[in-house]
Design a protein around this nucleic acid. Structure first.
Lengths: 135, 135
DNA sequence: TCCTGTGTATGCATACACTCATACAATATG
DNA sequence: CATATTGTATGAGTGTATGCATACACAGGA
């Protein structure tokens, strides 16, 4: 019952010039990957986020919208928003396509931040290996 | 003499929702932090950047302007733009921290979308290598 | 049924980001 | 001095991001 509140408390909007909806999108994706939000979890309400961060409802919706298009959320009218099941089946070519998509997004993000893709690749490999062990 | 050209070749603008001037700002800051741009170096001309990236002169100026306000650049009318003396914050270690942050965020996103981190790493490496060649 | 909490959808207003075009001002060079 | 180069500046026009307000549509419970 406290999950949403805890997530809410972690959200931060910074005046860096990066659009608010982008900041929200990244923070939620990260919370999911870190396990602070898991499949089936109810997300904080759009209105909750809007009020808590003193941000417009449409802005939050913009973020939730993109997360749904990414397949990370399920938006259910009248009920709420929920973290989607990460398709574990995602086999064969479908998996390759998704992987490719994300890989390109990542390179774009790295370029946008001026981070060397090769250095980034190495770092990811190391962290991924660490995660393998701990699980 | 090749410095500007080399820096120019590393610049990338991606449609991530992050404003172009922010992308430029970050990339230059990181080039400084990584030592690819050091005190006294002449920056590529605003017009060079504008033409190379097919972006408006005012947009580039916006980025250079912020960098000057940050103390990272000295803009000299009629002569050019130069990296300031104490190339500000974001030194080597800070750069590593940023890379680390992005790496973790990527792993988070991958987990959230049900994508295998190792497969992702390989794909990124391939795409990054391709990009290196084409430039 | 009625009420409340959701997501969904408008319209209006403001500010910002970006492009395009056109200059002006200072510096360097011939 | 003339010219080119570079930074500086402005205005028009378009699209987006954000905020504020007001609804509508659907689900669940009293």
């Amino acid at each position: 019952m406290h999950t949403q509140d805890q997530i809410l408390a972690t959200l931060r909007i910074e005046p860096t010039g990066v659009p608010i909806y982008v900041q929200l999108r990244e923070q939620f994706l990260r919370a999911m990957g870190a396990g602070r939000l898991t499949s089936g979890d109810q997300m904080p309400t759009m209105r909750q986020v809007a009020v808590a961060l003193r941000v417009d409802l449409n802005t939050v919706r913009h973020a939730y919208d993109e997360l749904e298009r990414l397949g990370a959320l399920r938006l259910v009218r009248g009920r709420g928003s929920f973290v989607a099941e990460p398709p574990p089946a995602l086999q064969g070519s479908a998996h390759e396509i998704e992987t490719d998509k994300l890989a390109r997004q990542i390179l774009a993000a790295a370029a946008a931040l001026g981070i060397d893709p090769l250095a980034l690749t190495k770092r990811i490999a190391v962290l991924a290996a660490d995660q393998e062990k701990s699980s």
